[in-house]
């Protein structure tokens, strides 16, 4: 089942007088349950593509259709609401809210979605067990390791059961052990719960575990391989 369909996608920047084509005519389809890595050298357009898919950036032309909705037709207000209910984000720098505990961070999106306390508690308990950070619920991010913080960020992204997770360089700030742990967790969630993950990454360890690797260069897909 198609989750994301990208058609003739272009995204240009005019940073200086020179036009930079960050995304240059991409056509892609992501199916439900994929565990895909978008890879490529710096400046190849990975993050821009992820931002456009996530509705954080508008395309210059082309369309991104998520579960039947062309997100380029949504107003800014509708887009915020769409992101809230459909897309999970995992950022390179974790970006947890420092004044909230691990549990409060993880359930933050569910609260924005007005989910009941019982629903939240059940989901967070389930997720914290899955990502292996039980007992850290009431600890604030500054007292968690980088790996633990990123796991909380994954829990936050998954809590609301989004259609897919966009993870931008999620392992860039983690050591090998934490990276391996995090990838194990995400892969398990992908396999057990059929959650779709799309990574933008340089990290070979992520690439090695991906089921599909999309190579970008100069804003174009140069290779699209299904590995497993």
């Amino acid at each position: 089942m198609k989750v994301i369909e990208i058609k003739d996608l272009y995204k240009s920047y005019h940073d200086t007088e020179v036009e930079v084509k960050a995304v240059n005519g991409i056509n892609l389809i992501f199916e439900e349950g994929e565990f895909s890595a978008i890879v490529g050298p710096s400046g190849s357009g990975k993050t821009t593509l992820l931002n456009v898919i996530g509705g954080l950036d508008a395309p210059s032309s082309g369309s991104v259709i998520i579960d039947g909705t062309d997100i380029s037709t949504l107003s800014s207000r509708q887009m915020i609401d769409f992101r809230l209910h459909n897309i999970g984000f995992v950022f390179q720098a974790y970006n947890l809210i420092p004044v909230l505990t691990a549990k409060e961070n993880a359930e933050f999106i569910m609260q924005l979605q007005k989910k009941s306390r019982a629903e939240r508690d059940a989901r967070i308990a389930e997720l914290f067990a899955a990502i292996g950070i039980q007992g850290k619920e009431n600890i604030r991010p500054n007292r968690l390791s980088g790996g633990q913080q990123q796991r909380v960020a994954v829990a936050r992204a998954l809590a609301s059961k989004p259609k897919f997770i966009l993870a931008d360089e999620p392992t860039a700030n983690l050591d090998s052990k934490s990276t391996a742990n995090l990838l194990d967790i995400m892969r398990k969630l992908n396999e057990d719960e059929n959650i779709t993950f799309i990574f933008s990454t340089h990290d070979q360890r992520v690439i090695d575990r991906a089921k599909r690797v999309i190579l970008l260069d100069d804003g174009k897909v140069t290779k699209d391989t299904k590995t497993k």
């Binding site: 996530g54 207000r77 915020i80 609401d81 992101r83 809230l84 209910h85 720098a93 924005l112 936050r156």
Partner: peptide, 16 residues
């Protein structure tokens, strides 16, 4: 800045 950007990215609307 980064924190506000993140909460807006994950779906907190302008009124909130």
């Amino acid at each position: 800045t980064k924190e506000l950007g993140m909460i807006m990215a994950i779906g907190m609307n302008k009124f909130k």
